[in-house]
Design a protein around this nucleic acid. Structure first.
Lengths: 250, 250
DNA sequence: CGTCCTATTGATGGGGTTCAAGGCGTGTGG
DNA sequence: CCACACGCCTTGAACCCCATCAATAGGACG
């Protein structure tokens, strides 16, 4: 965030600062909004299916998951939420959430009052567009997740999973180009990828043997991101990170 | 649409009329917006990856698909678009679309100018909320699609696919409770479900033999929707169809 | 009547699951 | 400080669902 070095900012502000046409003043307003903060432990539920939510919730640190459970208790992780992600993108129009939000690691989230936000939107038009953009980004990632599960084999899925998370972490200054911290178990990965943890284990071993990655404990090194990308058909277009010059305000 | 019998309406207006708190006058304004209409044949591309879109496009009749192609030419259908669906939900913030839109049958779409729409939003606040709701609905369906591909077997996928489309068609008066028209090939179904058309064929036969459905040509009858629903864990909560009384305007 | 697209059905093979056993690391309590 | 438990990872073996390959049939359309 080179242009905004002079005030404290949350990860979401870091993300929004990448949005073309954002007004620095509006970001400051946003960052100064009153909020309450909650801390969760690994495994805690942040929100449950059916909950009636009336706050905008944003991740400030740690990992969380949107997940859905089938009748027989199997979990499918729909999307992984990182620092700077919005937990409740549709809270203004859908009051009841239809899935679970659970902490995958120690997690901190901020709660913003909807009335505070709508009040701010009135005087911060580029901010509301930027928040819309952030939630459109998630939509795009979820669409790519469908492609993951529908058309890639287990090894490609694991590779793609790593690359996507790495890129997202880098974009909020939570990882270097070469390495990242994976605070989740292989069981979590398997529930995101529609696989079993046995397959994930075997595939991580394969990727290590082939020299694509190295792993000890929670630190994962990317030794050949290029090779991995071409192997699993990873393409960052769907992140929509580059600023869209034509974007206009509502 | 029992409350709005007295003016011509598009399928999207029918859908939006189900949204709690929508103002009838605003729907009329929306329906009277100037538009151009385009007709496509089965197989035509409506939009391609990378296209720079500057209109809001809405399906008025026929079926279309959001789809993504992998490097080796395999198609994954991410979402099926029916009458009343918005082709370009994020057009205000993402100018370049990252996937393909293709006609699955003869298809009619309407193009609305973004400036006409933003002009209308100024005097129709409940309309913009309702459109947001419509696009939040699609997000929810795509999330459920992830669960489909990640955690259901091939037979459950086919069953769930049928039930979901049926419910959506009913909600825009395009199907009866007992039967629907499926204008797509089994190959299309397989590309949506991450399967092969061979498996889809076998599974449709199974569902027929078990007495859940009957099929001749493009007409599909639902003989036991209840049984089918419990078999594949189908639950309409994720449609968010019932009006949310708490919804508020931006 | 031939062509092309779609659907059906059988046979075979493979990728991923399932079941199972053992290892490693960490924390806890005797 | 060691013993034990527990969670997570690893690795092997057997099985099964679905893909793949292939052949045929049916339908629409010129």
């Amino acid at each position: 965030m080179p242009d905004f070095p002079d005030f404290a900012y949350s990860p979401l502000v870091t993300r929004l600062s990448h949005y073309g046409g954002i007004d620095k003043k509006e970001l400051e307003f946003f960052d100064e909004l009153p909020f309450s903060e909650t801390r969760y432990q690994k495994g805690d539920r942040v929100l449950e299916r059916g909950d009636n939510v009336d706050k905008v919730i944003v991740v400030t640190s740690g990992w969380a998951a949107r997940s859905s459970y089938t009748k027989n208790g199997n979990r499918q992780i729909i999307h992984i939420l990182l620092a700077g992600d919005i937990v409740t993108p549709d809270v203004f129009v859908l009051k009841h959430i239809d899935h679970e939000i659970e902490a995958l690691s120690t997690l901190t989230v901020r709660h913003l009052n909807m009335s505070d936000l709508t009040g701010l939107f009135a005087k911060a038009p580029t901010l509301s567009t930027a928040l819309w953009w952030a939630s459109a980004q998630e939509d795009s990632l979820v669409r790519e997740h469908v492609v993951q599960l529908g058309r890639r084999n287990s090894l490609q899925r694991v590779a793609h999973f790593i690359l996507e998370l790495h890129r997202r972490l880098v974009s909020v200054d939570q990882a270097t180009e070469e390495a990242m911290i994976l605070p989740i178990t292989q069981n979590v990965i398997s529930d995101a990828l529609g696989l079993t943890f046995v397959t994930v284990s075997r595939n991580l071993k394969l990727l290590t043997q082939e020299g694509f990655v190295a792993k000890n404990n929670t630190v994962l090194q990317l030794l050949d991101a290029e090779g991995l990308s071409s192997f699993c058909d990873f393409d960052t277009v769907y992140f929509h990170l580059q600023q869209d010059k034509n974007a206009q305000e509502l």
